[in-house]
Amino acid sequence: MTLRRLILLAMSVTIIFVQEQLLMFIPNVQFTTLLIVLFVSVFTFKESIVMIIVYVLLDNIYMGTLNPFYMVPMFIGWTLIPVVYHTLLKQTKNANTLAFFGLFMGFVYGWVYIPFVMIQLGMNHFWPYLLADIPFELIMATSNFLTILWLYEPLYRVVSQQMESIEKTCIPLKKNQ
């Protein structure tokens, strides 16, 4: 990994974190899924996982939720993006496919929290929790779908061009890495 690539990774975490804090007053409306999908499609799988680990740690430290009941489902939820992108989606750059994936992720991200909430509250809260979460999942799914559909391609063009130009001019930190 080159130093510039490492810096790009840090910058991408900053962008994700700052936009999420700015949009916090509207529940589940965010560009986080769009940005993670975007960065996952320009970084390698390993780099994407590193980016998500740092983002989840930073977010939970800042929000005061540094406990496994929030951090673990959050990490699993966001990690599903690079995992599915590199397997089922076969690294597609098709905005429509990614938008439908974002729509699906809006629901899956909410469901990932259910086992952890059940450990805390008990199984008798399963249906109330599942039903109460539907409006938030709908908002996140819509937000994901529309942002990816309209913004993924222009953002991908800019980011991949920048990445290419950086790759051409950079010096590796170590040989063969």
């Binding site: 905005a95 429509n96 938008a99 729509l103 539907i134 409006p135 709908l138 799914a141 819509t142 779908f145 529309l146 559909l149 309209w150």
Partner: peptide
């Protein structure tokens, strides 16, 4: 055009769900 149709369809579906 396809994007616009998809966006409107999703918004209609979400409005109905709400």
């Amino acid at each position: 055009m396809k994007k616009m149709t998809l966006s409107i369809a999703i918004l209609v579906l979400i409005t109905f769900a709400f």
